Computed example of a mutant assay.
Amino acid sequence: MLTLTEIQNRAFMAIGPARIAALSLLVLMNKEHSEKAQVARQLSIDRVTAAHDMLGTKLPEMLKASNHNLPAMLEQQRQACFEALSPLIEVLKDPGKAQSPDFSDHCLYHLEPLVSSFLKEMTEHLMESQKELEVERQADMLKAIANAEVVGKNIQLIAFNASIEAARIGDLGKGFTVIASEIRDLSGKTQKFLDNISGLLRT
């Protein structure tokens, strides 16, 4: 499962280039037919398509797999960005639409600020959410270690009592005394191991 930071990075890398790609398409569509222009045009097409896919399906799927939901306002921004990229997908099917003044205004004054705002808000939200998850995970680990420490102390006490009982039996209890001693030593080593982990988590 991806962390929220990894999701943020993947989404940013897929969506961010679409802003420049949109402007490139605006300039390149039906303007130049050189090999260099065709390569640049295809790169822009690939970037717009990748951003559209990320906003439409991949980002929601990654978030769902990580059991995370965007806040309502940020989810609305995601949908708005997806819808704002849809006219570009239509232009890829019909390049003639790129000549429309409405398309130019859409790329320059609607799409770019919308996507930029979403990327900023998404990055801040996912990074902060990941920090909160790490704090919660650390607290859970410390709690688990504390529980293990209690169990370890109980094992030491049981082993100590077992060695006392074995001593009372005499020669018949010698073998059991050795086993109880080994259990007590292992429990002590485990206790030190847990203490070390606990110290690392608290620093």
Rank of each mutant, 00 (worst) to 15 (best):
residue 19 R to H: 02
residue 53 D to E: 08
residue 13 M to E: 15
residue 53 D to R: 07
residue 26 L to N: 11
residue 58 K to M: 06
residue 188 G to Y: 14
residue 141 M to F: 02
residue 171 D to E: 13
residue 93 K to T: 12
residue 166 A to P: 00
residue 170 G to S: 13
residue 39 V to E: 15
residue 113 P to A: 04
residue 164 I to L: 10
residue 162 A to S: 06
residue 127 M to P: 00
residue 16 G to A: 11
residue 148 A to F: 02
residue 115 V to E: 07
residue 143 K to I: 04
residue 80 A to Y: 04
residue 103 F to Q: 11
residue 21 A to D: 06
residue 179 I to G: 03
residue 97 K to L: 13
residue 71 P to M: 13
residue 5 T to S: 10
residue 69 N to C: 07
residue 20 I to K: 12
residue 148 A to C: 05
residue 201 L to W: 03
residue 8 Q to H: 02
residue 126 L to C: 03
residue 86 S to R: 09
residue 142 L to V: 04
residue 187 S to L: 12
residue 163 S to D: 06
residue 91 V to Q: 09
residue 115 V to Q: 05
residue 9 N to G: 07
residue 183 I to V: 15
residue 17 P to S: 15
residue 64 K to Q: 12
residue 145 I to Q: 09
residue 64 K to E: 14
residue 63 L to R: 13
residue 72 A to Y: 04
residue 66 S to A: 15
residue 195 D to A: 14
residue 30 N to R: 09
residue 118 F to D: 06
residue 18 A to Y: 08
residue 88 L to W: 03
residue 144 A to L: 07
residue 157 L to M: 14
residue 193 F to C: 13
residue 24 S to V: 08
residue 66 S to C: 04
residue 20 I to A: 05
residue 41 R to C: 10
residue 194 L to Q: 08
residue 156 Q to W: 05
residue 2 L to Q: 04
residue 194 L to P: 08
residue 188 G to P: 03
residue 122 M to A: 06
residue 143 K to Y: 07
residue 52 H to S: 13
residue 26 L to T: 07
residue 178 V to G: 02
residue 107 C to Q: 05
residue 39 V to N: 11
residue 97 K to E: 06
residue 76 Q to N: 09
residue 147 N to D: 13
residue 85 L to T: 00
residue 26 L to P: 08
residue 177 T to K: 13
residue 59 L to T: 06
residue 141 M to V: 03
residue 20 I to Y: 06
residue 191 Q to L: 11
residue 11 A to Q: 14
residue 119 L to F: 00
residue 37 A to F: 05
residue 143 K to R: 13
residue 34 S to V: 07
residue 17 P to I: 15
residue 94 D to N: 14
residue 144 A to R: 04
residue 47 R to G: 10
residue 61 E to D: 06
residue 167 A to F: 01
residue 20 I to C: 01
residue 151 V to P: 09
residue 132 E to V: 05
residue 156 Q to P: 02
residue 2 L to W: 00
residue 64 K to W: 01
residue 165 E to T: 12
residue 53 D to F: 05
residue 44 S to C: 13
residue 175 G to H: 03
residue 1 M to D: 12
residue 196 N to Y: 02
residue 33 H to R: 08
residue 178 V to D: 11
residue 5 T to F: 03
residue 120 K to Q: 09
residue 194 L to R: 05
residue 98 A to Y: 00
residue 146 A to G: 15
residue 108 L to E: 08
residue 171 D to A: 11
residue 93 K to S: 14
residue 124 E to T: 09
residue 127 M to G: 02
residue 137 R to G: 14
residue 33 H to C: 01
residue 21 A to G: 11
residue 180 A to Q: 05
residue 89 I to E: 11
residue 99 Q to G: 14
residue 133 L to R: 13
residue 74 L to E: 08
residue 148 A to M: 09
residue 15 I to R: 08
residue 72 A to N: 10
residue 20 I to H: 07
residue 41 R to A: 12
residue 154 N to F: 03
residue 142 L to Y: 05
residue 48 V to G: 07
residue 133 L to P: 00
residue 77 Q to R: 00
residue 106 H to I: 09
residue 128 E to L: 02
residue 139 A to Q: 11
residue 191 Q to H: 10
residue 66 S to H: 09
residue 186 L to T: 03
residue 158 I to E: 15
residue 47 R to F: 08
residue 47 R to K: 15
residue 24 S to L: 10
residue 157 L to D: 14
residue 18 A to R: 05
residue 147 N to Y: 00
residue 180 A to W: 04
